[in-house]
Amino acid sequence: MYKFLVACSVLMFSTAAVGQELTADEIIRKAMDHYRGQTSHAQMSMVIHRPDWQREMGMKTWTEGDKRTLVRVTVPAKDAGNGTLSVDGNMWTYTPKINRVVKVPSSMMSQNWMGSDFSNKDISKDTDIIDQYDHELVGNYQQDGHYVYVIQSVPHEEAAVVWGKEVLHIRDDWVMLEQQFWDQDDQLVKTLRTLEIREMDGREVAAVIRMSREGVEEEWTEVRTAAIDFDVELAENLFTLSNLRNPRE
């Protein structure tokens, strides 16, 4: 009986300890996996808002693992067919108007993606943070009955990253609530906030996220996920240049 109790308490403690001991790296890994799945296919819209105008685009996206993303614009008709493919940190863009695939040079990766507040990098390699940064759990708080981890991620010395650090707020069901981008002078530059969380395909998903630069709150870009399917079968050649040019679906 006594032994049983000891065993129980050890077990309890150890599980509790496991819960506590989740490292910052693991939390980020889980958040990324949660967000991308092994594979995913989504219907999204992007709203670019400026004080004097606003523009909306419809897009389809496919992801596989950490390193492959395909984005294809569907609406408005004028821009339909434009696509962006990124594989292993390289990025190509296809425009039907000129029927050409152009590789985006690395010097352009921190430029805006098509006039939005997202950079090319934001669009393509959103899991870079896992292996190019050192992560540290710096705090936590409770929100809506959830436990939220606050993680500070500082890029490795030699990482080709423009940011000084990023601060991530990740809920205990691995939904990312907030991602802050700080420059190398320790000034907050822009923040990606989750405005709406919905259950889609059996997961809690950040359905509306908004990127806004610090100090210019009236300018923002929202990505709204209308539908997303995780762990779907994807065609072998989906993430290839020939598919970028001639979509087969």
Binding site: R55, R100, V102, M114, G115
Partner: peptide
């Protein structure tokens, strides 16, 4: 040469 950019209305701009 090919050009890619964004137009005044935010649309994709491209030309050869």
């Amino acid at each position: 040469l090919t050009f890619l950019g964004s137009g005044r209305d935010g649309s994709f701009a491209a030309g050869v």
